[in-house]
Simulated assay, not measured.
Amino acid sequence: MGPKAAEDEDIAVRPDGRGLSLRAMLPNAITAAALCSGLTGISFAIEGQWQYAVLAVVLAAVLDGVDGRIARMLNAQSRFGAELDSLADCISFGVAPALILFVWSLQGLPSFGWFAALGFAICMALRLARFNARIDIENQPHKSAGFLTGVPAPVGAGLAFLPVYLWIETGNDAFRDPLATTLWLGLIASLVISNIATLSWTAVRPRRDVRLPLIAIAGMAVAASLIEPWWLLITLSVGYLVLMPYALFRYGKVKRRRALHQAEQ
């Protein structure tokens, strides 16, 4: 989510009256680009260009991860940017994946498939609304422990496309089965709005003895994104799902440690 400031704070207007600076406009421009990328994915899906449709949403996720960080680097945070980011996320990671998956597979079950697409989009909107409602609340157990609540919006969209990755890579139409896709989308939608603790990248602190191997793995991942992008996306999706029980285990340890500390006071 985009960083925020007071609603009446007008940080983008120069005191000399010359209007908006490029520094203030850049993060919001990146957010708008992410929104356009997600919507373009729908256009590709209508034309049956499934690879481009999925990659357009993946590009939106990359841009979404960049805009907030650039805003903080440039000290260009604003409430407007936060609200724009939330609306863009709802469309790019809720509406766009739902429509792409409906055109790709779910329309094989006209009623249940459409309800699955609606449910996913609604759950994504509810997640983002919950985030905005809690943004000023100080007492957030998951956040204070370095965890997120539920599956983040970009990750949820990426997980929803797992059957598409497998279908593109293998060509097996079993992955395009509308009933299986409906059940899968329902599962991801439930994880998006769940209250379970999930890993946050900002809380990851690798030991010094593994940092160099991690840098090497990151470099290889970039190469894989160019050579075998679908296998990379499959690996990332499955890896995230495998790590979810680990996140619950870690949060359970933190929770027990906190309870013990409070009992000793």
Rank of each mutant, 00 (worst) to 15 (best):
L59M: 12
A29F: 15
N195P: 14
G252S: 05
L214N: 12
P245C: 00
A117W: 02
G113L: 05
G94I: 02
V210N: 15
V95F: 04
V155A: 13
C123S: 13
I217P: 13
R256P: 09
L74G: 10
E228K: 06
W231G: 09
L59V: 10
D173K: 05
K253L: 15
V54K: 04
N195V: 02
W230R: 01
A221S: 13
L199I: 11
C90K: 03
L63E: 12
A129N: 06
A157F: 05
L109P: 15
G252A: 01
D10I: 13
D209N: 07
T235K: 01
L26F: 03
L185H: 03
R257W: 13
A98H: 00
D85Y: 01
T40Q: 06
A125Y: 13
A174I: 08
E228T: 11
L191N: 06
E9Y: 13
A96R: 00
A56I: 05
D209W: 08
T235S: 15
R207S: 09
L109Q: 11
Y165H: 15
A129W: 10
R18N: 15
A157L: 02
H142V: 09
L233Y: 03
A180Y: 01
N172D: 13
V238W: 12
L179E: 07
A157H: 12
M244T: 04
G186S: 09
Y52F: 14
L63Q: 13
L187M: 09
A61G: 12
G239E: 00
D64H: 13
G113N: 07
R127E: 07
A157V: 08
V62S: 09
K255I: 02
D136I: 07
D136Q: 12
R256F: 00
L20R: 02
W231A: 06
T181R: 03
S190Q: 13
V164Y: 12
S200R: 11
L260W: 05
D67Q: 07
L39M: 03
A6K: 03
A56K: 00
A189R: 06
G219C: 08
A61Y: 04
N139L: 14
I46C: 07
H261Q: 12
V254I: 03
A216P: 06
T235Y: 04
A56T: 05
A96K: 03
G239R: 07
A216K: 07
L214Y: 01
E9P: 11
L20G: 04
P110T: 00
I11D: 14
S144I: 15
V66P: 12
T31C: 02
L74A: 07
V192G: 12
A263H: 07
S194W: 01
S225D: 14
V155C: 04
T31D: 05
E83A: 14
T170Y: 10
M73R: 15
D209K: 08
L166A: 14
R130K: 14
L159P: 05
R69M: 02
D209T: 10
K4P: 07
L226E: 14
Y165E: 14
G68D: 03
V151T: 11
K253D: 15
L126N: 06
W184R: 01
G252V: 11
